[in-house]
């Protein structure tokens, strides 16, 4: 218990260090997330729009979940050496599956009758995608994004193993920072992940179209 309290003393004494490490932690996480989003979201949306490739989308996700991040980093040590790139690639590989799967499911679950009605009215495939499918898919798509973000922020801790920097530098170096330092940095990682999750939760609410907001969420629908 003392060590736990000491961790707050550590925070007070090493605020600059923590802020610096937290910043590099966030930069690494953000980079990995953006790369994963750019790869996975369009692919998942496209597969969902075509209502094909569900097997791929789900399989990638399952394989991704089964791969331990530490093992990935170890594998890429051999291929990419030590440093930012190695860790970035490993984090991207972990962030892709939840985004890909949810993007696919989000678009695929849009009622096919709506798509049929839209086609029958003479909307082009792009108009169907941007006017109908994407607005209705956003909430589920965002669930995948939240999972990926939390995943990346917590896993970025392991970057320290391969010289990627971040709060992991403190957590994995008990010799230098002591147990209280380890706990302090771990708490910061947790808080970062929670804050990111809460922020994305708020964005998700804003992006959910008004007409469907009251459908499932508060049960006030008059169906």
């Amino acid at each position: 218990m003392n060590t736990f309290l000491d961790s707050f003393t550590f925070m007070g004494g090493h605020l600059g260090l923590l802020l610096g490490k937290a910043w590099s932690h966030l930069v690494l996480s953000a980079a990995a997330f953006v790369v994963a989003l750019v790869i996975a979201a369009p692919l998942g949306i496209w597969l969902g729009h075509r209502r094909r490739g569900g097997f791929i989308a789900i399989s990638v996700s399952n394989v991704g979940r089964a791969l331990p991040s530490l093992a990935l980093i170890a594998i890429f040590l051999g291929l990419l050496g030590i440093g930012f790139t190695n860790v970035l690639v490993a984090l991207v590989i972990m962030a892709v599956p939840p985004i890909l799967t949810n993007a696919y499911l989000a678009v695929e679950q849009v009622d096919p009758d709506l798509v049929r009605a839209a086609r029958g009215m003479g909307l082009t495939p792009w108009q169907i995608l941007f006017r109908i499918e994407l607005p209705l898919a956003l909430p589920v798509l965002f669930t995948g994004i939240r999972i990926a973000v939390v995943y990346v922020i917590s896993s970025a801790t392991l970057a320290a193993v391969a010289g990627g920097g971040g709060l992991g530098d403190i957590i994995l170096n008990q010799v230098a920072y002591g147990l209280s330092g380890v706990i302090a940095a771990a708490l910061w990682v947790a808080v970062l992940a929670l804050v990111a999750d809460a922020l994305l939760g708020m964005v998700r609410k804003l992006l959910t179209p008004r007409g469907v907001r009251h459908l499932g969420n508060d049960g006030a629908s008059s169906r």
Binding site: A118, G120, L136, P209, G211
Partner: peptide
């Protein structure tokens, strides 16, 4: 061509 289906297919977000 006007097109009406049994499931109506109104866009719920509009």
């Amino acid at each position: 061509i006007g097109y009406v289906i049994q499931q109506i297919g109104l866009f719920p977000h509009m």
